[in-house]
């Protein structure tokens, strides 16, 4: 125990009862550390942080760390998918072709969805900008636009699912695809495996989209109530980051599922 600490202890013992518990503790600290002045509470700063800047940095880093987890999560799936693509090339090829053939106006649903998501990335980026500049109406508008695009994506996806269902392509439901869809030499088991991967991967992705829509709803309510200001726009940035990531995942999934043959 260092000497100065012992001294502090003596002092503390001097007249204990006159001090508040906090003071007593402060005095009895055997610190080889100096103390800085107590922090001042500011709005939006959570109690564990000292400054708003610190809080923002922490929030951002937290989201990045989370996204790192997500990369590995999708990465594991994409790895398996790719391994089997090598093994069951024919079936994968056949699956991709069927997926790519479901079209609106001559453009495949997957391509539509890619366009929709890319646009939503743009609106999110603009929303972040609006938040930074403190433009509330613009922010709400852009967030609504993003949500609309997100919803459009899910709608298109749902229509694809419905189509797949009608063609008997849902594994285990039972899986009974129309024989005309099959290319020669395609075996049923691996073909079903393709569709399992397709559904697991797109469903997990869609789940992420749904969560994103929930987060945007929260942001809109906050913005509406005037809780998001120029100083406090971090939630928009962080949720925006998340949305960009969900887009990015699709940018990987789309060619893997629809295009690579």
């Amino acid at each position: 125990m260092p000497d100065d600490a012992a001294v502090a202890g003596e002092v503390a013992r001097g007249d204990d009862s006159a001090l508040t518990p906090q003071q007593r503790r402060a005095q009895s600290r055997p610190a080889s550390a100096h103390l800085v002045a107590p922090r001042h509470h500011r709005p939006h700063v959570k109690h564990q942080f000292d400054t708003l800047a610190q809080q923002h940095e922490a929030d951002t880093l937290g989201m990045w760390a989370f996204l790192a987890t997500e990369v590995l999560f999708f990465g594991g799936m994409i790895l398996c998918y790719t391994v089997y693509r090598g093994v069951y090339f024919k079936e994968w090829h056949n699956g991709s072709r069927i997926l790519d053939e479901f079209e609106f106006l001559g453009i495949s649903a997957g391509a539509w969805n890619t366009a929709v998501l890319l646009t939503s990335s743009l609106t999110v980026a603009l929303a972040v900008r609006a938040a930074q500049l403190g433009r509330r109406e613009q922010l709400i508008g852009l967030l609504l636009a993003t949500m609309a695009l997100g919803a459009a994506f899910l709608l298109i996806k749902a229509m694809e699912y419905r189509n797949d269902y009608h063609e008997g392509l849902v594994p285990g439901w039972p899986f009974h695809p129309d024989p005309r869809l099959l290319e020669p030499g395609v075996r049923m088991r691996p073909f079903e495996l393709f569709w399992s991967f397709y559904f697991v991967m797109t469903a997990v992705h869609a789940l992420h989209m749904l969560i994103g829509l929930g987060l945007f709803t929260y942001l809109i309510v906050q913005a509406w109530r005037g809780k998001l200001t120029r100083e406090h726009h971090m939630p928009v940035e962080i949720i925006g980051l998340y949305w960009h990531f969900v887009d990015l995942v699709w940018i990987f999934l789309f060619p893997l599922l629809y295009l690579v043959r």
Partner: peptide, 22 residues
């Protein structure tokens, strides 16, 4: 960095068990 890989692996085992796909 490692836990999500376990998560997805187990999901795939569950999918195989429930849907009987290989």
């Amino acid at each position: 960095l490692a836990t999500p890989v376990l998560a997805i692996t187990l999901v795939l085992v569950a999918v195989e068990r429930l849907l009987r796909v290989g």
